[in-house]
Amino acid sequence: MQTIQNIQKCINENIAVMVYFSAPTCNVCHALKPKLLEAIDANFKEFKIQSVDISLNEEIAPHFGVFSIPTVLVFLDSKEFLRKSRHMSVDEVIREIKRPYEIMTS
């Protein structure tokens, strides 16, 4: 089970982390997630991905200031770099991460 501490530890110990917030009742979440995870995996080898089902642990989302789903938080070098909620495209997320990620990992 995910906890705030587990997620924070992952963010602090890895160069690039994506936290994906969703819920079982969210159709958009389920459509977007596999496409997004596949694109992250294909483009960014160093990324760690944390998936948070907000229905299982209701404290995590507000801790990170997340109040709508799906929401994607991207942390680079332990700092929040990108926050996308609801209406996002996979290409848009990849495009926004690509340059800073390449600079950090080159």
Rank of each mutant, 00 (worst) to 15 (best):
L37D: 09
R83F: 13
N14H: 00
N12G: 15
C26M: 10
I7V: 12
I40V: 10
L56S: 05
T25W: 07
P34E: 03
T71Q: 09
P24S: 02
S51K: 04
N14M: 00
H30A: 08
E38N: 07
V74D: 10
I60D: 02
K48R: 09
I11A: 07
C10D: 15
T3I: 15
F67I: 09
R86W: 09
K98T: 10
A39G: 11
D41P: 04
L73D: 12
E59H: 08
I49M: 01
Q5G: 11
V66P: 01
S55I: 03
T71R: 06
I54D: 07
F67K: 02
F64H: 02
F44L: 14
C10H: 15
N12H: 12
E38H: 05
Q2V: 12
A23V: 03
G65Y: 01
I60F: 02
F64S: 03
R86H: 09
I4Y: 11
L56R: 09
I69E: 00
M104F: 11
S55Q: 05
V74P: 09
F47I: 04
T105K: 15
V52G: 06
A61Y: 02
N6E: 04
I97G: 10
V74Y: 06
I40E: 04
K98S: 06
E13C: 13
I7C: 12
K45F: 07
S22R: 06
V90F: 01
C29R: 08
K9M: 12
A16W: 12
F67D: 07
D91L: 01
T105I: 15
E92M: 05
K84R: 11
I103V: 08
I69F: 00
N57L: 05
I69S: 00
F44Y: 14
V28R: 14
L82I: 15
M104L: 14
F67V: 04
F64E: 03
H30D: 11
K45P: 05
Y101N: 02
Q50L: 10
S106D: 04
V17T: 04
Y20S: 13
I54C: 12
E80D: 06
S106Q: 03
K33C: 10
Y101W: 02
F64Q: 05
L56I: 06
G65V: 00
S68C: 02
P100K: 00
I40M: 06
N12P: 13
M104G: 09
A31C: 15
S85D: 07
I7Y: 12
E38W: 07
P100F: 01
E80R: 09
P62A: 07
I11F: 08
V93A: 02
S55K: 02
H87K: 13
